[in-house]
Design a protein around this nucleic acid. Sequence first.
DNA 1: ACACGTAGAGAACTGGT
DNA 2: ACCAGCACTCTACGTGT
Length: 330
Amino acid sequence: MERIDEDTRESTADERERERRVGVRTCPECEGRLLDDEEHGETVCGDCGLVVADEAIDRGPEWRGQTREGDSRSRVGAPTTKTMHDEGLSTVIGWQDRDAKGTPLSGRQRARMSRLRTWDERFRTRDHRDRNLKQALGEIDRMSAALGVPEDVQETASVIYRRALDEELLPGRSIEGMSTAALYAACRSAGVPRSLDEVTDVSRVDGMEFKRAYRYLVRELDLAIDPPDPTDYLPKFASELDADEAVQRFARDLLEAARERALHSGKSPVGLAAAALYAAGLETGHRLTQAEVAEVAGVSEVTIRNRYQELLGVDGPGRSETDVEEPEPA
DNA sequence: ACACGTAGAGAACTGGT
DNA sequence: ACCAGCACTCTACGTGT
């Protein structure tokens, strides 16, 4: 992409012609000669220093041949584009059963061309998959780092993504959305607590698209993902709260008890975990405020209020005879 | 400062059509 | 595929300790 102006043997007439063909070449202010500043990607006036245009990078082929017959100055090849996976650089074997002069091919040659087309297609699509995968894995890597998830979870996410790719689940969906979904699915199946919100924060896609992609992924791949277990969140929240070890243990017991009474049906596991910690704080004398628990758990104080009383009520004085027994198959 | 309760809005799942 | 109903959570506010 160098615009080479040091070829001083060119006549000035030729230069004018070149300038005319290339486009903007004289400064609108002083009519001075414009130069491309490669380092900054700008076009500046050599005389007055005016910056005429940013991003004036010409991705077309160089307007000068490299070979002996270079002076023919034929402009060769199409400009590249990011909209195609190969940037438009690949060669496509045409479908006509004729040679370059239009003469029909013999049967033997036709068969040969057909095989070549097949392989051409295979390589091109494989290349496509590679790029897709590479980008997705890069995204997963980036998000994993941002979330601080362990390496094996990241590995699982990659495997899930590959499966999705193999089962042709990707066409029509964004790579970012699907990689986010794969990472979230990996976290879930590994019991590494990362909430939807946390994952959404580091993702390049919005929550809606992410959730849609996640559901789709789980459904199509039949991923066996347990409903999130509130106890998975306890260590994380407890450490962020600098809570006493006893609080965490007590909270775990509360959640166990709650599970046996089938207290969670559709209730947010994060909210339950937060409420359990708060309740445990009260019971063990290591008080935590609702506000701080709500803060680290990312739920509202109201949710904690509503949940923690249920948690305490369950194995409190009342016992359970008032509750209708609800057969919950989990 | 903190805890508690309530009302209305809104997102998400379910079942009906 | 669209829609209504539902349980749940959130924000916002007022009250009580």
